[in-house]
Design a protein around this nucleic acid. Sequence first.
DNA 1: GTCTATACTACGATAGAC
DNA 2: GTCTATCGTAGTATAGAC
Lengths: 209, 209
Amino acid sequence: MREALLETAIDHFGRLGFEGAGTRAIADASGTAMSSITYHFGGKHGLYLAAADHIASSINEMQQHSLEAIASGEPADGAEATQRCLALLDNFALMMLSPRTERWARFIIREQQQPTEAFERIYTLAMRPLVEALVAFASLARPDLADREVRAMCMLLMGEALVLRAGYASVCRTLGIERIDEEAAALLRRKLAANARCILTATPAPENG
Amino acid sequence: MREALLETAIDHFGRLGFEGAGTRAIADASGTAMSSITYHFGGKHGLYLAAADHIASSINEMQQHSLEAIASGEPADGAEATQRCLALLDNFALMMLSPRTERWARFIIREQQQPTEAFERIYTLAMRPLVEALVAFASLARPDLADREVRAMCMLLMGEALVLRAGYASVCRTLGIERIDEEAAALLRRKLAANARCILTATPAPENG
DNA sequence: GTCTATACTACGATAGAC
DNA sequence: GTCTATCGTAGTATAGAC
């Protein structure tokens, strides 16, 4: 029952926000009574934090294998470091495109703009491993850049994947499609890889702005 | 009074969502009675749509001058087309970084993931002009790409600016700062320009994936 | 552990005074 | 055009039965 409440809570909180979601509605959709929330989580706020934890560990679990496969061992040279960055970004893009993460993404994007106690848990457990791995490889691919610059570059690159969720409706409108299907997803992933390769293998010359 | 209600409504709807926001709270914060909302907008839903229209025309008004300045006349060559893309993107990034647009962005990002009637109005009036101008110039900068590819590339590029809002908390954490101040904003804009220049002036060779 | 019952507050819509 | 008053509904929290 705890599990069912958490799943429903992530959905409702993600779609309606903390204030918009209702404990009665969450309990009903979970097939239980509202007071179960009080029993299991102490109240609405406790349920919210538990939902954040559940998302964080789900993402962590989901990414653990691919992250280990990509990020284990030191890359031999800059070219291999670039390849690993591309793999990490494609992995992230796939997550942004997966229907399974749709509810999680809504929850997280909301927290990004108004971080609460829940964001800390999600960032530390689910996002930091990815970001830091990306920054590490990008540093090797672009040894000409300072750490701050690499970090800024990496966040912008992650933005190219993030837009697939955070700007979903605009992406669809601009491409003239109803939803991002397999074909559109392939196109976007291919262009993302091309952009990232371009940025990560750039010669220091044309940078200075 | 209509104006005050709209400003407050954008703030409350953006932070709390449609369901989370309360007509009483909006009216109180606007210094009037709740029934004023019924009088001016017919109800909560009418107020929401009016808020979307208000955001759309505010953005349209804000961008009109710079958009005209950047996008008027045909660029002489690919290099000039690239420069215009960079200008459009920097303009968009500035908007994402401006405190004035913070409330608007929350409202819009919410609509992106669960588009309602309100999204259509915002997209058509506020976003399409920017997107289509960007796509047009990018086509000139990268004549080797098909229209669909250019559109995908442009959305990804806009994602690099969007992340400054939609991933605000993560950007701050990754850069090790509390908030995006002048210095961080300058860094991010500089890197965004570098990335975009890199992508827009790429030779067709390394693309094939 | 899960349920019902209940207390209290807040919500949106509306009618009618001024 | 703005206010107060009121109605019906839905919110969270809590106590207590099983």
